[in-house]
Each structure stands twice: as structure tokens, then as C-alpha cells.
Design a protein around this nucleic acid. Structure first.
Lengths: 196, 196
DNA sequence: TGAAGGTACTTGTTCGAGCAACTAATCGAG
DNA sequence: CTCGATTAGTTGCTCGAACAAGTACCTTCA
């Protein structure tokens, strides 16, 4: 890299070993496919990023999905994940916090905190179980019912964005693929749980 | 619910309106498919959770995938997401922090913090650009090279868990499905970005 | 009956992620 | 040359998520 005189704008003659900010920016393309596409185009072997195409794809889908969910839910004052908990309470009624955690497959500290925050927001109520001193019953408050329709609409919107103009049978294909991935991953997760 | 006398164990005669902890626990099954399966079995309409089967499936796949990634990466002292940043530096060499953020499609505060943490761990080095007073160059340290092989192995393991015994062509199907989802979501995300 | 094992929830801690707001440096039009 | 617009990075803040550890309550078994 050789800088030109100060009287004209400095530029980098060719790609230097440091991305000085002046080199032609081959890596500056900001499409979401870039990491994957770059990896695919980069030739074999040398690129760590070429490992795990399915994992990369999962990561990218999950990221944008959650980003969109976050933006939609923000309009009604919820964070991603909170709506799943509320949905469960709306659909199934009051239940033990531990059951909630089990069904959501979330860890207990996370549920404790999430419930507390929703309680503070007035959307859930906590009460001790009448029969077991360890147990807390969680229920959706009347105030949260106003949220229910909004959350329904938001999830419908999110689903529409997700499947876009896929045919019904294509959606079925996609669901099947995701189901297989989930089964594979769940199997691994369960055997690792045994190892611990 | 009617409790029995104290001299014998109290039980709940039938499912009461509060999950008191004694009722037959129909919702207590803790398989990861429960939310989806329950929703499918629950009949139409009344369940918020029946909305968005693809979104639910994405959420579940992403959750376990990230959980597994987290456990594997933890063995080498990294958090999920950090390895993607390191991969990028290993593969592409030193670069501007803003380029890193663009390529990872991460927001700048997240990258700032992640880089700082990796710097503290000795895995990256930050230096000012020689030509632009705003720019910080990020590079992988020699110390991080010891990590590279471990991360490669971890991602290979993760991918193996993810695809399990799927045939090559089935993997291609899955990648195609994920690619479509990503395109749909990215399209929505980009048009929302224009709205803001 | 009492001890051991198990369950429910909480607290501590770290992280990535998103959005808002801010400061400093650079760019480009007038 | 000036100044408004844009870019780069940082700080503030909230959240879910994971793992570790702790306390209190319940169940089982000798």
C-alpha cells in the first residue's frame, strides 16, 4: 500500500495485507447470504467458514426470524420468548412454574426471571400452590387478554413473512425438513444430557 | 378438587381448574416436541400456539442448535457467536470492525463488545487504522490459532449432529428449504428497514 | 422417625442481541 | 472553505439464555 500526496485523496493501489479502509472492498458486500456464498466461492479446505453449511443456514434463518419477531413484538411491549410463555398460559390456563419451564423447554432461572418481568408488566399473576410449599402457580391476568389478539396477529404476520408465497405442499416439505433437523438435534441433546 | 384426610396422602380426584400439582399431569410430558404436538392435537382455532407452525419449528430447531453449539464451544472457552467472528478473522485476515459487523450482519454495539471480550481473552488485537481516524482494525492473535482447529472440529461435530444420517441429497433438500426461508425472511427484513 | 435423595424456585454471573443516543472523524455539496 | 450529512465506534439499557450454586420443601426408604 502506498499513500498518495496529501493534496489529493489517499487511495490504496492494491489490496494490502491489512484492510486499511482504502483497498477495494471485496468483503464489503452486506447481503445476508454473504458468509455462506463467500464460503462456497472460496474454494475448499482453507476456510473454517466452509464447515457446516446446514448449521450456518440454521443460524442465519434463526437470526432473521428472531429479529423480525423482536420488532413485531416490540410494538406490543413484549420481548421474543415472552409471547410463547403467554401463549401457553392463555391456551392452557394457570399452571405450575415448573410445568411451564418443562413445556417451553426453558431452564428454570430463565422462566423465573421472565415470569417476574411479566408480573411487573401486569400480564401474569403468581400465587403459592395450596398443597405444595415449593410450588408457584402462574396465571395470565385479565390485563393480558388485551395482548392476546395482538400476539395472534403478530404471529400470523411473522408466519406470512416466513412462508411468503410458498405453496401449501412446499410448506409441508419445509416443515418436514425442519422436523428432521429437530429430531436429529434433540437426539444429540438428549444423549449429551445423559453424559452429564 | 377435594383433598382427602391427612392420614393418607392427599390427591386430586380429577383435573381441577388450577394445576394444583396433584391433578393427573397431562401437560407434564417434557419432550421437545410437546408444544408442537400438543398444538396439533388440540383442535383448531382456540389455541394461539397453533398459529405459525413453521415459525414454531424454526424456533425449536434454533433453540436446540444453539444449545448444542453453546455446550461444544464452552469446552474451548467461547460463547455462541464468538466463533463466527473468529472464523471470519482466520479466513479473511485483519479487517475493519465495521466490515466485520457488516459481514456478520450483527449490530455495531454487539460487535464492539464481542471484540472487546475476545481481546481480553487474548484472541484478537485491535489497532487504529493508519488512514482513517474513525476506523479500528481487528485481527486474530497468534494465540487464537490454537483455537482454530478446535473450532473446526466443533463445527464438524455440530454439523454431524444436525444432519445425522441424512443422505447427501436429503441434505441438499434441507439446505434448499432453509435457503428459501432465509430469502423470505431477508426480504421482509429489508422492506421493514426501508419503513424505518 | 429421620436421613438421603429429589424437586421447585431463586440468585449470581456471563454472554449475544437489539434499540437508542452519543461523540468523533470523514465526506461532499455549495 | 464551511457545514450538514454520513460513518465508525462506544455507552446505556433491557432482555433471554446458559450454567453453577444455594435454600426450602417434599418424597422415599431403612
Amino acid at each position: 500500500m502506498r499513500l498518495r500526496y496529501r493534496s489529493i485523496k489517499p487511495f490504496c493501489e492494491k489490496t494490502c495485507s491489512v484492510n486499511c479502509g482504502l483497498c477495494p472492498r471485496l468483503g464489503r458486500v452486506s447481503t445476508t447470504n454473504n458468509a455462506g456464498a463467500g464460503a462456497a466461492a472460496a474454494g475448499p479446505g482453507r476456510r473454517v467458514a466452509s464447515a457446516g453449511p446446514v448449521s450456518h443456514a440454521i443460524f442465519r434463518v434463526a437470526r432473521i426470524h428472531k429479529l423480525l419477531a423482536g420488532q413485531l413484538l416490540r410494538e406490543v411491549g413484549l420481548y421474543p420468548g415472552q409471547e410463547l410463555l403467554m401463549m401457553r398460559l392463555w391456551d392452557e390456563g394457570p399452571q405450575r412454574q415448573a410445568d411451564l419451564a418443562a413445556v417451553l423447554d426453558a431452564d428454570a432461572p430463565t422462566v423465573t426471571r421472565s415470569v417476574r418481568r411479566l408480573e411487573r408488566a401486569g400480564f401474569v399473576r403468581r400465587s403459592p400452590s395450596p398443597t405444595d410449599g415449593r410450588v408457584t402457580i402462574i396465571e395470565a391476568t385479565p390485563a393480558s387478554m388485551g395482548l392476546r389478539q395482538a400476539v395472534e396477529r403478530i404471529w400470523a404476520d411473522l408466519e406470512r413473512m416466513t412462508v411468503a408465497d410458498m405453496s401449501e405442499s412446499r410448506q409441508g416439505d419445509v416443515l418436514q425438513a425442519l422436523g428432521e433437523l429437530e429430531r436429529n438435534l434433540a437426539t444429540s441433546e438428549e444423549s449429551r444430557r445423559g453424559d452429564r
